[in-house]
Simulated assay, not measured.
Amino acid sequence: MNTKLLMSVSAVVLGVTGLCLSFFPEEISNHLGMTGASAILLQVLGALYFGFAILNWTAKANLIGGIYSKPVAVGNLAHFMIAALALIKLTVKDAGSLPYLWVATLIYVVFALLFGYVFFTSPALNNKPAKV
């Protein structure tokens, strides 16, 4: 599997989400009908997403999978798997939920499956002979 592509795409998705949550928490919380300290919680969540985006972007050139970059793979797997399960539970419980919730669930399920594959398989090494 091309882990460089996976790490880059996940970094972009998490980075955009993190920046939006960090810079527009009040607007997002108002749109979602949230009140109170939810804007601060969204801002903290945005910082978390942005931090994961930076981690994935800087680790994209590393060999990931098997024993290589295990903390990066297990961190991403845990994040995407736990969030995917929570989103599945929410969307199944409320079948008439908003369309963007279904989109978020689909994105999380896809990333959870891909990072699960990366975590539980050995990476293919590039066996091309070195150019002299």
Rank of each mutant, 00 (worst) to 15 (best):
A39E: 12
L45E: 04
H31Y: 14
N30E: 14
Q43F: 09
F52V: 09
L48Q: 04
A47T: 02
L45P: 00
L41Q: 06
N30R: 15
T35G: 05
L45V: 05
G51N: 11
Y49N: 13
L42C: 02
G51R: 12
Y49T: 00
A39H: 14
N56R: 07
Y49G: 01
L48M: 10
A53I: 04
G36H: 05
L55R: 12
T58E: 03
F50N: 06
V44H: 02
N30Y: 01
V44M: 08
A39C: 04
L55T: 08
A47I: 13
S29N: 07
Q43G: 07
I54P: 01
F52K: 02
T35R: 11
I40K: 10
Q43S: 11
N30M: 11
H31D: 07
Q43N: 11
L55W: 13
I54T: 14
A59E: 13
L32G: 00
N30K: 13
L55V: 12
S29P: 07
W57K: 03
A59W: 08
Q43V: 01
G33D: 11
K60C: 05
A53T: 06
H31G: 05
Y49D: 04
F52P: 04
L45I: 07
S38H: 10
L41A: 08
Q43T: 06
F50I: 01
V44W: 09
H31M: 10
N56M: 03
I40Y: 08
S29G: 05
G51K: 07
G46V: 12
A53K: 10
S29A: 14
M34G: 08
I54R: 00
L48I: 13
G36P: 06
I54G: 03
N56S: 08
L45G: 11
G36N: 14
F50M: 09
G36T: 05
F50L: 14
F50V: 01
G46M: 09
T58R: 08
L48T: 06
L32Y: 11
K60M: 13
K60W: 03
S38L: 03
K60Y: 07
K60H: 10
G33K: 13
G46Q: 03
A47Y: 12
A53V: 00
L48C: 01
W57I: 07
G51S: 15
Q43C: 09
S29Y: 02
I40V: 13
G46P: 11
N30F: 03
L41W: 09
L42H: 01
H31I: 05
A47W: 12
H31Q: 10
T58Y: 03
I40T: 14
A39T: 04
H31F: 12
F50Q: 06
L48G: 02
T35S: 12
A59H: 11
V44F: 11
S38K: 07
T35Q: 15
L41I: 02
L32H: 04
